[in-house]
Design a protein around this nucleic acid. Structure first.
Lengths: 243, 243
DNA sequence: CGTTCCCTTGAACAGGGTCAATCAGCGTGG
DNA sequence: CCACGCTGATTGACCCTGTTCAAGGGAACG
């Protein structure tokens, strides 16, 4: 039952436990005691990898679980009254999706894999039970929810006040920082989402995103080969983004 | 200690308890047992009225409490990197402010009274304690936080996809619905915030907000006398807002 | 190896921003 | 009581950023 190769704990490996998951430091940095982690680990379910463009859940589905991304990437989106897609977030390994379902017992958005992804399912009813017994866990989930609110408010500000250049630069800086947090290169990575997803997320059109990226490349703020990003200049991009 | 006039329970009265607060149905609709409400009531602090433009807390302050608006109105805002104010929300009686402080133990935004307001302070450490004992209370706060996420995501969509007309119409419809929820007129009320606050909240300029409101008045969707709204046509405005 | 989807680039257009002037409400003080 | 100044709201004229429309190129998948 325990992973054979516990020291490596590759995030794609379905037999990893929370204890030795490489992402535990950022996924559930909950200052849990090791026996507490075991109890959490017991309710976490690890399925087979989710294929690209397969859904984790859909807007309106009955809420049952939140999901931690272990590898790959996920986007969330909802359908507007006018009928088109609004991307509300991108989620990378260590990040938790589905928190918007708690309030109404139904997911307010859909979540779909942008590439093959490994996902931990965390049934929420059991989290609630366990949270009653483990104050650290309760606190962790309060913080998780609150942090999502702060993120959303930052995004509101971005959409409300910033130019196209600033929005695109902000997204690149954000993804770069999240790469670094996972000990990966901050200056070279692959964008898992389509230009249209970026555009929707940033409140722009595909054409504008494409033009801005081309210009950034010309100004040597990044090197871009379709979805491959390299030689990303974090400092200069932060300046462009007003950070 | 108990209010003299428990049946009236005017929301401005500082001696009201959660039990007989007129807003209990919408403020903390937590399906709490009456003895549970008493325990909650014991930790809620009711101060003297907060004067207009006085702060409840400021961005960066150490987080201690969440606040329920009992009467009046509050706006939250943060200061952007460029130095200007971004209004992130308007809060009316029965609504809870300050949830964004949980994640980092510091408030991520400032909260200020838009008019004289009565506020209930709810020390969060005690809510955490009590939540460990009362599953209904724990659940209620999870739902509260999650609902705020859903609201923010709706707002993101509004800013990302909607025109100036749709944004202004949406806000009017939203305020109207919140009036109705408190058994007040859905078609006549006073806007407690300045045009500049509306503009910031909606990602527009003051001039645009003013022009749109003038046009709405000309089209007889509302009657407007500075901050006084009357004869608001909810159905027509919903059509304009794409709802 | 072709079909389809995605990305890029160009040219013209428009919604909302910017700048500026005017007006209305209101508290202060002469 | 009214003059004054301040702040907030309205309205107009012009302009700019990002959208729209259109076309072509390139990657990916069966």
């Amino acid at each position: 039952m325990q992973p054979v190769n516990a020291t490596k704990a590759c995030p794609h490996n379905p037999a990893v436990s929370c204890n030795n998951c490489r992402l535990s430091g950022i996924c559930l940095p909950l200052a849990l005691e090791s026996d507490e982690i075991v109890r959490l680990d017991n309710i976490v379910q690890r399925g087979r990898p989710l294929q690209k463009s397969h859904h984790l859940f859909r807007e309106g589905d009955v809420f049952t679980s939140v999901y931690a991304v272990r590898s790959g990437a996920v986007k969330t989106y909802s359908i507007t009254d006018a009928g088109d897609e609004q991307v509300t977030g991108f989620y990378f390994p260590g990040e938790v999706v589905g928190l918007d379902g708690i309030g109404q017992n139904r997911y307010a958005s859909s979540a779909v894999a942008l590439e093959v992804s490994a996902i931990c399912e965390i049934p929420f009813a059991q989290i609630e039970d366990l949270s009653g017994q483990l104050p650290n866990l309760q606190r962790h989930f309060f913080k998780l929810l609150s942090s999502e609110i702060v993120d959303d408010q930052r995004h509101i500000t971005l959409l409300s006040k910033n130019t196209a250049d600033e929005r695109v630069a902000s997204l690149l800086v954000s993804i770069s920082a999240r790469q670094a947090r996972r000990q990966l290169s901050a200056s070279a990575f692959r964008l898992p989402m389509a230009r249209a997803d970026i555009a929707s997320f940033l409140g722009l059109t595909v054409e504008t995103v494409s033009r801005v990226l081309s210009r950034f490349a010309k100004q040597e703020l990044v090197k871009i080969d379709n979805k491959e990003i390299s030689q990303l200049d974090v400092e200069k991009l932060k300046t462009v983004a007003n950070l």
